[in-house]
Structures are given as C-alpha cells and as structure tokens.
Amino acid sequence: MFGALELGLIYAVMALGVYLTFKVLNFPDLTVDGSFTTGGATAASLIIAGVNPFLATAAAIGAGLIAGYITGLLHTKGGIDGLLAGILTMIGLWSINLRIMGKANLPLLREETVFTPLRENMMLGTWLSIGILLAFTLVLKFAIDWFLTTDLGLSIQATGNNQQMIRSLGVNTDNTTMLTLALSNGFVALCGALVAQYQGFSDISMGIGLILVGLASVILGQAVFGSRTIIMASLGALLGSVIYRFIIFLALRAGLDTNDMKLTTALLVVVALLLPRWGFLRRIPSLRNRGNRAPARPLEGTVDTPDQMAGAAAGTPTSTGKTEG
C-alpha cells in the first residue's frame, strides 16, 4: 500500500514530464523510454563513483535535458517525424546507457542515495516519506504551472495549440519545441534517477514501456480531474500516476505477476482511449485525436449556429474528431 503510494509519487515526476510533451506541446515523445534509463544510469554510476547523490541526481537531469534536446533537434532542424525522432533517440540511448553503466545492471547496495536518510530512520513506507514525496512532486507541479503562465510558457502552450498563429507572432517554434522536449526529458531522467535510488539498482531495461506508464497516468488523471485548466491538468498527471500504481497494485494482488504488467498497462491505455468512443468519459478523447488541434465543439449559446460555425471552419484542415460529438 505505502509502497504503491511512494512509487506513484516518484513516477509522478515522469508523468509531469509526459504531460508537458503529450498534452502541452501535443508531441508524442517516445524518447522517454531511453531518457528514463539515462537518468537512472547517470545517477547510479556517479553515486558508485562516490559523487554526492543529490549532485548525481542533478547530473541525471542534465543528461535528460540533452536527450530531449536531441529529439527536438532531429524533429525541428532535421524535419524528422516526431514519433520517429523520439524512437531514434530512444534506440540510440540504449547504447549510451550501457556505456554509462558499463554493464547491464548497477546495484546501489550500501551506497548513499537521496533516500538513505529516510531509509536509515525507518521512515520509508510511512506517512512521513509519503508526505515528503508529495511535497516534492507538488513543488514540481507548481513550478510547471507557473512556468506555463509566463510569456515563454504561453508561447510553448501556443506552439502545441496553433503553430501557425504563434509563428506569426514572432515565436521560433523550433526553439519552443526543443525547449519543451528538453524540459520534459529532464523530468523523466530525474524520475529515472529517483527510481534507481529507491529500488537500489539501475538496469538497462528499466525504461522499457515507460512511455505507456506516463501516458496511462496522464489519461487517468485527465479522466478524473479534467483538463480545463493547467492547474487541474498537471494535478491530474500527478495523481494519475498514483492511481495507476494502485491499479497495478491491485492487479498484482489479484494474482497477476510483474511480467504481466506491461500488458496490463497497454490494456489500461487502450481502454482509457476507447471509453469515450462508447459515449462514456467524454473528457478523454483529445489524446486519441492528438492531431486535432481545433477545440472541442463550442458551448451552445455562446456561438453562432452550427451551420455558421461549419462554414467558418470549412478552411480548417484539422477537422473536429468524430468522438467529440
């Protein structure tokens, strides 16, 4: 129980990163699987080399920033499709991660980590550790909320919302895209570093499939908390991660083993994406229709008649998705 809560909160850091790319930037970034491990690998090998665990964690963030930036470069300057750019970085990172670690698995037994103070005082798995982790993730969440409402943050939101418009207002969308991808993967790598230290080892395959975990968290959070405002959407990502861990926890309780969790996660995401098709939980569809930048149907009463709207929207290539209706 407490373990699931702690894990949920730690992985919430990654969910916040995924929220930045998937929801804010509207960019399906698959770098995550690689950059998560990069974070874990960087932190673990530095800690083993005797570096202060907090410094090692900071270095992991730096590595993640670079990884995200590379995906951004491939996509913006190289003109490579976003999905493919992420995959390329992710695959390339596999070798780099192995180089960083020197071998496939780095145990952190008896090493000093950021969790050592908690562990030594027997406070892991108590409300205290959960409170600390919650406070930490909330600080990150509020940092994102604040950032997204600055002039720079607004231009990032607009980049994900209407590139043509924000470019016509003088924003270099290549830069906002690269910046957001870097930040997002910084969060993801931070999460990887924390997970490695929490579980006591870094492993070359620790990141596999994590993009789905991040997605599941964002979608679950959105289903529960909605996404009307940034404050709610980022809170949704954070708590979605906790909800996800509970579902996994329950699935394990129900007799599934850890090897079944990838399939469970995939099914969870599929179900969450398909539910709105069946007329239930209408708040979710925007993720499935990722390419749909046009808004959902406007509220009645505030707008022209539908015919007029249809006429007005006739020039929009991104037509409204079927599920919106």
């Binding site: 607004l154 919302n161 209407n162 418009m165 470019r167 016509s168 003088g170 046009a294 020039g315 929009t316």
Partner: peptide, 24 residues
C-alpha cells in the same frame, strides 16, 4: 525567417481558427 519578420507584421488569416490559440 517568418518568426523574425513578425515584428514588422500584423496578420489576420481567412480561417477564423488560424489566428488564435483555441485552448488559451
């Protein structure tokens, strides 16, 4: 490049959806 010229230019497009960010 387009984004640099923007400081000289105000623009309105034919498509009413094009000139504003709907989620903001």
């Amino acid at each position: 490049p387009e984004h640099k010229r923007a400081r000289y230019l105000g623009r309105v497009f034919q498509d009413p959806m094009a000139g504003t960010a709907p989620d903001l």
